[in-house]
């Protein structure tokens, strides 16, 4: 094995290990849960900011309520449902995957899949150039040839 191949192999192994290590499940503290839920709720009095980001008093009040519910042992879904009950679906910053509006999650996947399929179809090993050219190109070619001084 050449040094290069060895280096490549080593790099691949280290990368895989690093990614595996990064992907391991992290313990989630109560504060983390509050932050995560707050990041998915929309601040009612702001321009699209999340409850986690907004410094407004309504947002702080909402964060406190989320913290209280987390301490009471409610699940993430229950806490979100409580706010949806008060403010409507609008309060969630992204539609849940399993709701009718969950289609928005599929759209990017579909777009990329479609585009990738299109692109892959076009990416083939270079073949010989086709013999026919369009009439416009033929005319251009002849003009160029005619314009060349011998």
């Amino acid at each position: 094995m050449t040094a290069r191949r060895l280096a490549l192999l080593g790099a691949a192994v280290v990368m895989a290990a690093a990614l595996a290590w990064a992907a391991r499940p992290q313990p989630v503290s109560a504060a983390d849960r509050v932050d995560r839920i707050a990041a998915e709720l929309r601040c009612p009095v702001c321009q699209g900011l999340s409850v986690a980001d907004s410094p407004s008093e309504t947002a702080r009040s909402m964060r406190a309520l989320v913290a209280q519910r987390v301490a009471e042992g409610r699940t993430d879904d229950e806490i979100r449902a409580e706010f949806v009950r008060s403010y409507g679906d609008w309060i969630l910053l992204s539609p849940p995957l399993l709701s009718p509006n969950g289609l928005v999650w599929l759209a990017p996947l579909a777009a990329i899949a479609f585009g990738a399929w299109l692109a892959w179809r076009r990416a083939r090993a270079p073949a010989l150039m086709p013999a026919e050219i369009s009439p416009a190109e033929r005319a251009e070619l002849e003009a160029l040839v005619a314009a060349d001084e011998p």
Binding site: P108, A111, I112, G115, A116, L118, A119, W120, R122, A123, R124, A125, P126, A127, M129, P130, I133
Partner: peptide, 24 residues
């Protein structure tokens, strides 16, 4: 286009892929 793009691991193919990703 007259003719295919080229091998998947060619510069022009990469540009095609980036077109797809940017548009997506």
């Amino acid at each position: 286009d007259r003719g295919p793009i080229g091998a998947p691991l060619s510069r022009e193919a990469i540009f095609l892929f980036q077109n797809v990703l940017f548009v997506a």
